[in-house]
Design a protein around this nucleic acid. Structure first.
Lengths: 114, 114
DNA sequence: TGCTCATTCAATCAACCAATCAAGTGATTG
DNA sequence: CAATCACTTGATTGGTTGATTGAATGAGCA
């Protein structure tokens, strides 16, 4: 056996993996990309994403648990935004890579454009 | 309803999410971090990570399917390495964020250190 | 204070995921 | 060409995850 190499601290590893896992879903990613532009409340997100409200609330709950988004209450509305700029960078970075990746991974080729 | 905002192309979104999902596991992340240093064959990875061989092979299969790693055969050995530098950057970036994150997320505090 | 709107929470269920083990493949060596 | 080494594959199985529904909460307004 070769000399053992330095491994990453397991705690950090789990932490980081949790962040990546939270980013690892198309619906959540779309949601985050929207929040990267500006803060929004659940209702507006629901309309923008054309999805049902509890589902989005559920996703936001998960993202909040992983501290990827933060909230701000204003009267009746609760506004969501990205927790910090680091996250925005990570998303941007990932999307850049995801864009240039080949399309042979996806079997369906709907454009989704209006 | 406010004016609809530009959503990300669903195909790109799924693609990116798939990459993040592949990164979203502590074992795989540790594996990738090791490969970020230098290419290695399965046997060596098994020793370095102190895990069983089929498990690691299985993880590599998944990572290969998502094109995060690439292989190079040399005689009996198959050497694995990161698919491209973009991936290395993404991992580095994520780990940086994962390191500075608080530890209250994890409920168990085993160190896992030998 | 009671009503309503915006949103969250809790529980259930289906789908997906990853670990494991045994068997298979493909390249080198005698 | 048969054996061995290095690794992959396939099937199973237990554990996680996410969607859904309906009830609950909390702020503002009459």
């Amino acid at each position: 056996m070769q000399k053992p190499m330095e491994l990453i601290d397991p705690k950090i590893c789990r932490n980081t993996a949790a962040i990546f896992r939270a980013l690892g879903d198309a619906s959540r990613l779309q949601l985050l990309a929207l929040l990267a532009k500006r803060e929004m409340c659940v209702t507006e997100l629901t309309e923008q994403l054309n999805d049902n409200l509890p589902a989005i609330s559920q996703r936001l709950k998960l993202l909040r648990a992983e501290r990827l988004v933060k909230t701000r209450r204003e009267g009746k509305h609760i506004y969501y935004s990205l927790a910090d700029n680091h996250i925005a960078l990570l998303i941007e970075n990932g999307l850049a890579h995801g864009s240039e990746a080949d399309d042979s991974v996806c079997s369906n080729q709907e454009t989704g454009e209006t």
